[in-house]
Amino acid sequence: MYKRVTFRDPLLPYLLVLPQMAITLIFFIWPASQALYQSLLRQDAFGLRTQFVGLENFARLLGDPLYLNSFQVTLVFSLAVTFSGLAFGLLFAVMADRVIKGAATYKTLLIWPYAVAPAIAGVLWWFLFNPTIGILAYLLRSIGYDWNHAVDGTDALILVIVAATWKQVSYNFLFFLAGLQAIPKSLIEAAAIDGAGPARRFWTIVFPLLSPTTFFLLVVNMVYAFFETFGVIHATTSGGPGQATTILVYKVFNDGFIGLDLGSSAAQSVILMAIVITLTMIQFRFIERRVQY
């Protein structure tokens, strides 16, 4: 944490941290504290009077079936995105770690979706699943499933899960591959000499040794699914049909920015803050153990 050798200057360090501090205070800390404050207030219908209502906004939210539904949608969505993303990432990483020829090429061909914006990923899959023209919808129809995400909530949810996962697989792939390559080959060889076959070696040696990476990715993917997938949904289903794809972040945007319900939106923001703080804390507890400060 400390350098033994430091410079002395009465003013310079403050000037150096000033820009970062100013932006942090103006655009992060102040708005966040505003959200906290407003979550305790209620405005009348015309925005003329505000009054302090304590935790009433929160109580209302937790009693609101729409909000609870959104919570449920978010959970299903993020668990599905996290697990399918991790599974595919791990599968490809294990395979890429095995190949001798062409490993670099596979790597290049598998990582680029990381650079695709979630919104664009959403639009791509939306097009593929488009009930009129989409090739996947056509294929599904030919095997007897009538796909229509504009009407069917489950179809819509699957669509956004697929799009969000597709973008994230490359990230998981990269980290799993790095984790696999960090496992000493001598361990695998020792297990092979002990008579363990490939599958057994994977589950008894490789997978446990990967667990720090897996745990790290678990948290990162949850954060991604919770917060960074707004674009996927906003650009495609707009939370519908009905409320089938209204995840929490979409709802806070919709209620606050479109619906202008200040108190409720602020309370939702505070709940989201609590979630992201919890996830970040978990991640940092873990990093503390992993990285020597």
């Binding site: 941290v17 970062q20 501090m21 942090t24 205070l25 103006i26 655009f27 992060f28 800390i29 102040w30 708005p31 966040a32 505003q34 959200a35 407003q38 917060f227 960074e228 707004f230 972040v249 806070v252 945007f253 606050g256 920015f257 200040l262 939106s265 602020a266 923001s269 989201l272 803050m273 992201v276 703080i277 970040t280």
Partner: peptide, 25 residues
């Protein structure tokens, strides 16, 4: 204090402070 203030930004993505940040801007 500076260090921890910067750290806190990790936990405050735009998504959790949409409206008040918009107001500031």
């Amino acid at each position: 204090l500076c260090f921890w203030t910067i750290f806190v930004t990790l936990m405050l993505p735009v998504e959790v402070r949409i409206l008040p940040t918009f107001e500031v801007v």
